[in-house]
Design a protein around this nucleic acid. Structure first.
Length: 437
RNA sequence: GCCCUGGUAGUGUAGUGGCCCAUCAUACGGGACUGUCACUCCCGUGACUCGGGUUCAAAUCCCGACCAGGGCGCCA
């Protein structure tokens, strides 16, 4: 049987005189001689438990006096309307039960009075997550993912799970984490890319996966993680990448709008306001992007991928035009992975990135569905077709034209909420140096 | 992988050769206080990452290790 308890926001001053049970963590304790305040925090907020020495039984007063901060308690008492109390009511307890005492001193201050470094916070993430600002990020993340599922389901995408343990590189290039897999060589998946594409040969037509994947790159920045989660989509029977862009627009707008509509409280806690996304998102050709950045005084070598600096500059230029969300399309073919469909002009490709505020959140393309072209491109990239056995095999027996993309959830949340570090958007981040908790 | 910066009580910090058996805040322990809400006030506990070196003298300078922060490349 679950405890019969109320959340702090379910109690109102109008419940004056009613007996209730609340449970949560001791947020703060203030002692004024014969008057003691215990501020209890639960998922929805705080509730003040007030103990006038003369009106509560001595044992309850003593229990309250001995409480350490962050101990888990259950309080049963009477609601009393009180203008001087937070939320307009307080609870006069009949009983206080310590469900789990907290040791002292705490490794960090959950009230946030004394700021802690991110490293200290992550070392003590469970306590860190008790802070409203931190918890708000994950409520928003939850809502964004929920909205992504809602939209993709409504568009008849099938949710799938592809293997996390793979036998060889998905795309070449990126470093993989080796796994001890009995007598065989295996790796952690760096992306569901090849499996998503193979599923285009099944008749599912549209698939998506909320996928965790692993990058063994030794990068060490506020923008990179070694374990990331993405909304990965793939759709068949498209004309070209333009069909994919429309799905992305609706998906991203849906996610942002869901957060706007359902997370008002969390956005307020974080002090953020989100602009309503304007559809359609502008498509900027790679060539034009380079030109724009060039004209802004930053030299970019044409034909190369945009540097971080160039990407930021483009973000500034677009912001001046009132655009926070935009696509960069038609990248040069030579800087894109082997499975990327070439443009009619084969210098370019049917590829795109979605940028939010000058940061790349989504990357995708129309894919190659012709077996011969795929083999040719694999070889051109200096990879060995023999390493792509079962993947290539699928392309021999009927794969419709298709395309897709991956949306980095951590990067999306970080950019959306202007978080200073991508690690803020993961419960337990994995980076170059961190493997615990 | 490359480059730069840093490591002082539980937490966050001040201190850049002697003024430091180390500053302040908060936390923690004890005490006073019946309307607090960062309560207030009094008393107390608590730290120079580690190992070498330079110097009459090292938290401070040098070397190494470990740990951390930031940037680049790469990418979600």
């Amino acid at each position: 049987m679950m405890m019969d308890r109320r959340y702090s926001d379910e109690i109102t001053p109008e419940m004056d005189g009613l007996k209730v049970t609340v449970a949560g963590w001791v947020h703060d304790k203030r002692k004024l001689g014969g008057l003691l305040f215990v501020v209890l925090r639960d998922r929805e907020g705080i509730v003040q438990v007030t103990l006038p020495k003369k009106f509560v039984v001595p044992e309850v007063f003593e229990t309250a006096r001995g409480l350490t901060k962050e101990s888990v308690i259950r309080v049963t008492g009477t609601v009393q309307k009180e203008d001087k109390a937070p939320n307009g009511y307080e609870i006069i307890p009949d009983g206080i039960e310590v469900l789990s005492p907290a040791a002292t001193p705490l490794p960090l201050d959950p009230t946030g009075k004394v700021e802690a470094n991110l490293d200290t916070r992550l070392d003590n993430r469970v306590i860190d997550l008790r802070r409203g600002e931190v918890a708000a990020i994950f409520k928003i993340r939850d809502t964004a993912i929920e909205a992504a599922r809602e939209y993709l389901r409504s568009e008849k995408f099938v949710e799938v799970q592809t293997p996390r343990i793979i036998s060889t590189s998905s795309e070449g290039g990126t470093d993989l984490f080796p796994v001890a897999y009995f007598e065989k060589e295996a790796f952690l998946a760096q992306s569901p890319q090849l499996y998503k594409q193979m599923l285009m040969g099944t008749g599912f037509d549209r698939v998506y996966e909320i996928a965790t994947y692993f990058r063994a790159e030794e990068h060490d920045t506020i923008w990179h993680l070694n374990e990331v989660t993405a909304v990965d989509c793939e759709m068949a029977f498209i004309e070209d990448e333009g069909d994919v862009l429309v799905v992305i627009e609706n998906l991203v707008a849906g996610m942002i709008n869901a957060v706007r509509e359902r997370c008002g409280k969390q956005l307020e806690i974080l002090g953020r306001e989100l602009n309503e996304p304007r559809l359609p998102f502008t498509r900027v050709r790679y060539d034009d992007a380079v030109k724009m950045i060039d004209e802004a005084g930053l030299k970019v070598p044409h034909g190369e991928d945009l540097t971080t600096e160039a990407e930021k500059k483009l973000g500034e230029i677009m912001k001046e035009r009132g655009e926070e969300l935009y696509f960069v399309v038609k990248y040069p073919l030579r800087i894109k992975p082997f499975y990327t469909m070439p443009d009619e002009d084969p210098v370019y490709s049917n590829s795109f990135d979605l940028e939010i505020k000058g940061r790349e959140i989504i990357s995708g393309s129309q894919r190659i569905h012709q077996y011969d072209l795929l083999v040719e491109r694999i070889k051109k990239k200096g990879l060995n077709p023999d390493n792509f056995g079962s993947y290539l095999e699928a392309f021999k027996y009927g794969i419709p034209p298709h395309g897709g993309f991956g949306l980095g959830i951590e990067r999306f949340i970080m950019t959306l909420l202007d978080l200073p570090n991508v690690r803020e958007a993961v419960l337990f981040p994995r980076d170059r140096k961190r493997l615990t908790p």
